[in-house]
Each structure stands twice: as structure tokens, then as C-alpha cells.
Design a protein around this nucleic acid. Structure first.
Lengths: 224, 224
DNA sequence: TTATAAATGTATCAAATGTTACAAACTGAA
DNA sequence: TTCAGTTTGTAACATTTGATACATTTATAA
């Protein structure tokens, strides 16, 4: 049984009224499947040719490693969609194995039918395009960050990004520990590098605010 | 002047006949702009509210760093689209500054008009979705690779990925130098680690083929 | 075959970062 | 204030990787 009041909360159907959504669904083919706790919903490696949206209950996504063991990746609950990034593109396979962690109702829309939905309603189209574009942008940012090798470079990038064109001082909201985790380094290593950069006059630290006296000099760090 | 014979070679319009494409364009608003060599086409940070496709000529994309200097990112030529990943999503700004490297004709389609195109033609819709999804998938893969810290882990991931479930031996097509570049490490470091792993019995190297006697043991490396 | 270039194996040393440990400074609640 | 928990600064040492150099092996073309 389709519950459009819930589905319209999903990122993909956001902004559509439950009634409109019901009307849209009446014009396509779809299934609502029920799973019991621990039932398998998708298997990693399986072809992804339909969009799955959790209508009721919660699931967990696990990845199978090379030795066959599974590692939990994330928990998802209604009304979230599954694997939106793998419905299109070159690699049309579920990257993860998904199983129910409670009684679950799953709306399953075959890819061609979902394409119809996208063409019928520009809001859905925009929502979906925004979802996967944002993901690509997020990944791109993350990748750029990781591309800086040394801790100094990561700090320089982080600070210059935060400062923008205008500001000369940056207010840090995270603890050193959180920053270190973002940077993928250990906390003492980050502290050491900050202290070194401070001694060299690259930055001036006062509690949670960091001043960059010479942005050009800081920028040099990103070159090598 | 719109040249649909060229545009239909573009990833976004692939599979559409020049005539059909002309008909589709007749139903939307668009512009064809001409630029002379060295003219600026987009400026980094500018709002990205239109799709740009190179119809004639070539351009270069440059990124402006914090000190105002520019670094060349890539060269693009007809019939390639620009910044497809930034038309939608949260960050609607061109990440790069694009300028003409020859006389250039650029087709400019405002975002709402492009959305119309997507809705009118399911092939264009599929092409576009495939383009940005593939990008997200590519980035995701790259990120996973970079998330392994030590060279041992990168090698283990690379080999296990190549071997899949079945095979016990992997044939390497690249030189060590190329592999090292993929991994983002120096060639001697890679060679040293390979030789250490070989001594420990983790792998057996014979020219370009590598055997993995114990995949479980290899898999352990990815855990810590 | 031979000459040449490319690829590989290996060694040494330096630099960067991780690991562990502990003290000092800060923060918030009783 | 006082005290417990968190955050920060810093030190000593281990580990990993980079940089450089050079000999050896392998591939390629004349």
C-alpha cells in the first residue's frame, strides 16, 4: 500500500503534495514489497535497475569484503532512497548488501518507470538531479582535500578556504581532535604542525581563532 | 548558428540525429555565442545557471588560487559540455575560469530550458543522468582508493579488486612507475613494499603476474 | 646480434607522521 | 569556588615514506 504522505518527505519527492504524488504514481508501474526483519533486500554486486525507497521501517547497508565478511556501512530509515548514485552511470550494480532491521515496506520503481516520473514532473527531476549533483560535488571537495599530502598543506587549504578573499582571521568551530579526524591525521601530529607553523609566523593562534598574516606565503605551501 | 551535426557527438546528445536535435532546439531558448582567442567565457565563482557546450574550437579551464594566480586544469574541445556537475546541486558556481584558446562557438542553454530538453527527450535525460552518475561513481572509487593510508593497503586493495572472487593471480598491465603514480607514491617506495610483501609470503611475483596465496591474510591488511 | 632505452631492484639517508605518554589549560556543573 | 572531564601542548621514540643514486635486468629497434 503506497503511503504518499510519507514518500513526499523523501529528498526525491520533496515539495510535492501527497495527492499529486499519488496521481503521479497512478501513471507508472511500481511495487510495494514487504520484508521481515533480517530479510535481504539487495545483494552487493546485483544489477541496480530500479529505484528503491524505504516507505516504512529501517534497513542496514553492509559491504562484503574480499574474504566474505560483512562490514556495516550505514543505517537508513523511511523515507530514504537507496543507492541513487547507482541507478544510472556505467556501474549499475549495488555496491552494498541491504537487509531489513525491522519490518520494512519498500517502494520499488523500475528504472524506465522512474524515467517517466522524471519527465512528467520537473520538481522530481530537479530533486533527483540535485541529489546526485550534490553528491558529486561533495565527493569532489573531499577528494581535493585528500589530494594535499602534508599536514601543512591540509591546514593551509582549510584555513584559506575558510578565510575566503576578505578575511584574515578564521574562527575554528571544531576541536583539534575533530579537525584531525577530518584531515585523516592524528591529533598530536596536527597540534605539532600547528605549533610549528605558529613559530614560523605563518599563523597566529589565539584560542579558537587563527590569524593568517601573509596569505601569499601561506598559499606557497600549496604549490610544491 | 547551431550546428547539430557536431552537437549530436556530445555526450549529452549522443544517439540523437542532427535533425531531431534541431527540432528539439527549436522548442527551447538558447544562444550561440562567439568568443575570440583569450576571451573569458566563465569566471570561477560565477553562478552556473546555464549549460555550456563547445560547438567549435577549444577552451582551457583554469583554477584561481588564493593568491590570484591561475593553474591550468584541463583543455576541452568541441563538442564537450562544461561543468555538467555544477548546473544542479548545492554549489551552483563554476569552480574554474574558462577562456578560449582559439575562436570558439559556445551553445548556452539556460537551466530551465535545459530542464525542458530533459523532459522532452528521454535519451538526453538518460545521457545526462549517466554523465553525472558516472562522475559520482568515478569520484567514489577514487576516494575509496585514497582512503587507504599505507602503501601495503593500497597494493592489497588493488590486487584483491583485480583478482575478484575467483582468481588467485593477477596480471599487471602497467609499469611500476605508472602504478606508483596511480597510488600517489614514489616508484622506489612501491618497489620496496612489493619486495617486502613478497618476502613475507603475502604475494609471489613473477614478472608481470602476481599470485596471492592467501587472500584472507591479504584482506587482513585492509582492516587496521 | 647488439646497442640503446626503459624498467626494475635495492641501498642510504632525510623528512614526515604515527604512537604513546603525560602535564597543563580550559570548561561546565555541583 | 572546586572538581571532574575535556581539550590542548609537547616530548621521545618508532615507523613509513620520500629523495636520490646506481647497478641490474628486460624490452625494443637497428
Amino acid at each position: 500500500m503506497l503511503q504518499t504522505e510519507i514518500l513526499c518527505q523523501s529528498p526525491i519527492f520533496r515539495g510535492i503534495s501527497p495527492d499529486d504524488l499519488r496521481e503521479l504514481f497512478s501513471r507508472i508501474l511500481y511495487q510495494v514489497k514487504t520484508y521481515q526483519k533480517n530479510d535481504l533486500i539487495t545483494i552487493g554486486g546485483e544489477i541496480c535497475d530500479r529505484l528503491l525507497i524505504i516507505q516504512q521501517g529501517s534497513v542496514k547497508a553492509e559491504m562484503t569484503d574480499y574474504s566474505g565478511k560483512t562490514i556495516k556501512i550505514e543505517d537508513l530509515a523511511a523515507p530514504w532512497p537507496l543507492a541513487t548514485a547507482f541507478l544510472f552511470g556505467k556501474e549499475n550494480r549495488f555496491p552494498v548488501t541491504v537487509s531489513a532491521t525491522s519490518e520494512v515496506e519498500m517502494v520499488s520503481i523500475p528504472k524506465p518507470e522512474f524515467v517517466k516520473l522524471l519527465q512528467m514532473n520537473s520538481l522530481i527531476l530537479n530533486n533527483y538531479l540535485n541529489t546526485i549533483s550534490s553528491r558529486a560535488q561533495f565527493l569532489s571537495q573531499k577528494l581535493k582535500f585528500l589530494s594535499f599530502k602534508t599536514i601543512r598543506q591540509k591546514i593551509a587549504h582549510f584555513l584559506l578556504e575558510k578565510a575566503g578573499d576578505r578575511l584574515q582571521t578564521v574562527e575554528i568551530m571544531q576541536t583539534q581532535g575533530q579537525l584531525a579526524e577530518m584531515f585523516g591525521v592524528t591529533r598530536p601530529s596536527l597540534a605539532r604542525t600547528l605549533s610549528e607553523m605558529s613559530q614560523e609566523g605563518l599563523i597566529e593562534i589565539d584560542r579558537r581563532t587563527i590569524k593568517i598574516p601573509d596569505k601569499n606565503r601561506m598559499n606557497q605551501l600549496l604549490k610544491s
